[in-house]
Design a protein around this nucleic acid. Structure first.
Length: 557
DNA sequence: CACACGTTGGCTAG
DNA sequence: CTAGCCAACGTGTG
């Protein structure tokens, strides 16, 4: 069922010369919304079908559609429209159906007399996707149905099962360093597949106005038609106003962006260092490719090889290296996927998640909503949250700041809540990456130095002393002098008046006092860590103190 | 067991 | 601008 690369190339050589068969096939687009480096689509073409139907199934759970906001919904629509357009250029088209794929696909198998179905294998371990694919697998062999399923993993540099088998009986690494070793042992990264120049036609008797791609987000059937919907969506035409997404959806834009922000900037690529990129830049200082990777408009292997070529072309003597280099960002991505895969169905939550420490977070809706709505009284935090709302993106370091603030730093709210909010708002929302980063920032897993805490005032001052970023995303503060832009509550009444603002009325006073509360929270973290150790049942003699001679001489009983 | 190190901290003294 | 400290971390290697 799961073809590997070798088998696929063998098929390519044996099948290409044979004449068209009488088979009919579906290529089921789920995540990889692209033609380039889409091995499952290539596999479909190499079956030489009489008819091939490219299908996308709009359901509430894939793409987190049930909970996503207008920005994300728009982005998906753009991806589908572009895909349809590119398919039509190659003699085909996209067929969009609405509803649960487990119900809809078997119907299509019957209607179109389908013999095989190809799709990108989902290895994330996400419960919804795993169950969906298991159910499809069962139905494909049920009764008179005999649909051959061909699934190929192509959303990571190596298939995750390759990492697992390389690792063998050894536990998977839970650090980036360990992962780098594993990646090297797993072998070289495969070259991407070229995009097909033409595709087998679907049955031309199907009317063009059937299975059409939605034209705008408000056309989407979800979540209006689902009783399971718990969250009020914001997809009305009103809600689509004043949104300025950082990128437009679709493979065409993805490849343009890859070219302009990466291929044509070899020196930028070769000297890229993630921690040096600026979270306060008014246009992204990073490549802006993340939404395309998360939706599968571009494959990680395509990006990986573009990076290799750019670095070579740059002639930079000492190009940056993982984990900070651009290549390193893709390594992080695979590492995160591997962890999600290994964690299984509890990945998104604290309970039962083997990579997540138990921390007794509070559940305070007032604080949570203040954070969500950019009303914490800390301009840097609030500006980030407003950028998320209007553009669907925040720089990685901005995400660090707001995630730390919500969890261990200041508000002591569960990372799960923050992760949910991000998932519904980020154009690059990604099951594996989003959770990994929340675990990291909340010091629940993979990162443990909870005594390193971001200040909601100090960190970004270095990069943006006059607060241009804040002025853009919080226009209410735009006229404040530089001196108070990060701490408006310190502005004297006269300055507030001059800036046309009253702190506490037009913009809130800080909802917590950072200096004090972050210290308290560190103690809470220490206690939580201690409790985890105790629960692990480490009996016997207490851990020896570090032999720092100076310190020991000072500490007396 | 010891040790080095970890993609991106803050603060203060010099 | 940099070094060193801060109560407080764990992983992976040797």
């Amino acid at each position: 069922m799961h073809l590997d690369r070798l088998l696929l190339s063998a098929m390519a050589t044996t099948l290409q010369s044979t004449s068209t068969t009488t088979k009919n096939g579906i290529h089921w687009f789920r995540r990889g919304l692209r033609l380039k480096d889409n091995p499952a689509l290539i596999a479909a073409i190499e079956q030489n079908p009489k008819s091939l139907y490219p299908v996308y199934c709009l359901d509430g759970d894939s793409y987190n559609l049930r909970h996503c906001n207008a920005l994300r919904a728009n982005f998906l629509v753009e991806c589908l429209q572009d895909l349809d357009h590119r398919l039509r250029e190659r003699g085909s088209r996209l067929f969009v159906v609405s509803g649960d794929p487990v119900k809809k696909l078997p119907q299509l198998w019957e209607d179109w007399n389908i013999d095989f179905m190809t799709y990108d294998q989902d290895e994330t371990g996400e419960l919804y996707a795993t169950q969906r694919d298991e159910n499809i697998g069962k139905l494909a062999k049920k009764g008179n149905t005999n649909v051959e399923l061909i699934a190929i993993a192509s959303e990571t540099l190596h298939p995750l099962h390759a990492y697992v088998s390389t690792s063998g009986k050894k536990a998977l690494p839970i650090s980036m360093r360990g992962f780098e070793t594993l990646l090297q042992r797993t072998g070289p990264i495969a070259q991407p597949f070229e995009e097909p120049t033409c595709l087998p036609c679907p049955d031309s008797s199907i009317a063009d106005n059937l299975y059409q791609v939605p034209k705008k987000a408000t056309d989407l059937p979800w979540p209006r038609n689902t009783p399971r919907n718990q969250v009020t969506p914001i997809w009305g035409a009103e809600d689509c106003k004043n949104l300025t997404p950082i990128v437009q959806g679709g493979e065409t834009h993805a490849l343009q962006q890859l070219k302009s922000n990466l291929i044509l900037k070899p020196k930028y690529v070769a000297t890229y260092s993630k921690p040096q990129t600026s979270p306060t830049a008014l246009t992204p200082s990073t490549t802006g490719l993340s939404p395309y990777l998360s939706s599968g408009c571009v494959s990680p292997r395509t990006v990986w090889w573009a990076i290799q070529e750019a670095v070579k072309k740059s002639n930079v003597k000492n190009p940056t290296k993982p984990p900070v280099s651009l290549e390193g960002q893709l390594l992080w991505r695979d590492f995160n996927y591997l962890m999600a895969h290994s964690a299984g169905e509890n990945w998104r939550q604290m309970e039962g998640n083997k990579y997540c420490r138990h921390v007794p977070w509070d559940d305070d809706r007032v604080l949570l909503n203040a954070w969500k709505n950019g009303q914490t009284g800390y301009p840097w935090i609030d500006a980030c949250m407003m950028q998320l709302k209007t553009e669907g993106w925040i720089h990685h370091l901005g995400r660090h700041a707001v995630a730390c603030f919500l969890t261990r730093g200041d508000l002591w709210q569960s990372w799960e809540q923050g992760a949910l909010h991000f998932e519904s708002h980020l154009l690059d929302a990604d099951y594996a990456l989003n959770t990994f980063n929340w675990l990291w920032l909340s010091c629940s897993g993979f990162f443990y130095q909870y005594f390193r805490c971001y200040s909601p005032v100090a960190f970004q001052k270095k990069k943006d002393p006059s607060g241009m970023y804040i002025r853009k995303y919080l226009p209410v503060l735009a006229k404040l002098p530089d001196k108070y832009i990060y701490e408006p509550w310190k502005a004297p009444i006269a300055d507030q008046k001059a800036a046309g603002i009253r702190i506490g009325v037009d913009y809130p006073k800080p909802i917590v006092e950072h200096t004090q509360i972050s210290k308290e929270n560190m103690s809470k973290m220490a206690a939580a860590y201690e409790a985890v150790k105790k629960a692990a049942g480490v009996d016997g003699p207490p851990k020896k103190k570090k032999q720092k001679t100076q310190k020991q001489s000072k500490i007396k009983f």
